[in-house]
Nucleic acid binder design. Sequence first.
DNA 1: AGGAAAAGGTATGAACTCAGACCAAAAACG
DNA 2: CGTTTTTGGTCTGAGTTCATACCTTTTCCT
Lengths: 244, 244
Amino acid sequence: MSTTPAPHLPEAVLRPVRGHHAFESCVEQLATAIRLGVYPRGTTLPAERELAERLQVSRATLREAMAALRQAGLVETTRGRGGGTVVTLKPGLPAARAAARTSTARRQSWLDSLDFRRIVEPGAAALAASRDLAPDRLAQLEEAHAEVASASKPAEHRQADSRFHLTVAALTDSPRTVEAVTSVQATLHEMLLAIPVLGTNIAHSDRQHARLVRAIVAGKPDLARRVMEEHCDDTAALLRGLVG
Amino acid sequence: MSTTPAPHLPEAVLRPVRGHHAFESCVEQLATAIRLGVYPRGTTLPAERELAERLQVSRATLREAMAALRQAGLVETTRGRGGGTVVTLKPGLPAARAAARTSTARRQSWLDSLDFRRIVEPGAAALAASRDLAPDRLAQLEEAHAEVASASKPAEHRQADSRFHLTVAALTDSPRTVEAVTSVQATLHEMLLAIPVLGTNIAHSDRQHARLVRAIVAGKPDLARRVMEEHCDDTAALLRGLVG
DNA sequence: AGGAAAAGGTATGAACTCAGACCAAAAACG
DNA sequence: CGTTTTTGGTCTGAGTTCATACCTTTTCCT
């Protein structure tokens, strides 16, 4: 009477429920935002009550997360009006390297991210280019690009690059797209910190960014997608060679 | 000393931590899998212990979710060896319609899903077409397509259609892609249940499915992507007109 | 018939999370 | 200079979730 469904779908569809330990999710999100440069060194995070509201957790839980960030040396906190929690992390080195040898599972997840990125970021670029963007939004894009091009130290360049990609995603006005790109950039950031940086790669990458900005500003979705695809392919080739 | 970051990124990047109430996430995932036809009527769900393992929750929590599904009339449970939990939901009507008028937030989320889908599903189709697929995987695809084409009642067709799209996603072997498509299909399913079905649309849709299958089997990523884009655009136009 | 195995059903104590109220410090404001 | 306001720090009781046992029912196999 009871049959079994074709096995390939259930296996693929059911995924672990994440978010036990709400405070871990908070730490992960905040640490990611800080490492990707959404909150650069020296900036102040939103007040605890506001952050708790945004992340939809109780302040108690958020504070645990903050304590963890503090202990990890990512932020420092001062009390009283005008106080708050300030980012102190220097962009380069820290954390993440701890798990020295990358496990097989980790590697699988990394490679998966490269595939997913190749879908999501070009799609986001095309969607952004198809939007009718107000001048101030285009200015955000140009500024993000200028920051990447002008970054001197590799670590700063890395953060500026993440910010640039997130800015492109934000131009889509699509929350789910932004979420996907954020997630992908977090993994990518992790991978890039694990390999040496090459000046040639950075220069090459910057040229692609410039082309991408032009395509988006000109409102050419197909071109924007192709440029971003090329960009993803180049990064992926580099990473697959060095971590795969 | 403490500056504030450019405002557009934090706003976009920080998203609510989901998964308070682990059992709600379980209910959502299982109900979605059942409604999308991953577990069609009459099939048996995996044993509680196995499901708990898969979803990474305790059995206690999973059982609460099962109780909810049981109470909602989606499943029935029998004890003892050979027993288990069987899907009893008839594909068509139930649930979801409760929230009659769609709130503005809901509508926003729906429109966002259409944008995100237009990125993810064509990307998944292209990736699937670029894989070197074993014959049995192609057979899964052909079978899923045959099920869509041969479904007589609209409700069954709807489930078969979801299964077809999930099968395409599964061919990518990319967990994150499958997750994205699953999520998108869940929202889409909800939307499609809220509008009347038209025979012409179904026939049109089936032709696009057929073209898609040919493109994937032939290993033509660009073609597969274009076909899927067209398919998404057509559905989106229909839905935007009827729910927007 | 009689066990072994597989499935759901039950129970318990520890840990986590929540909401809300309240305290303390420090800057801004009049 | 003192009051107000903003911000982090603290506490508490109720509700969830977890891990880990153990029990009951039913079927399959010898």
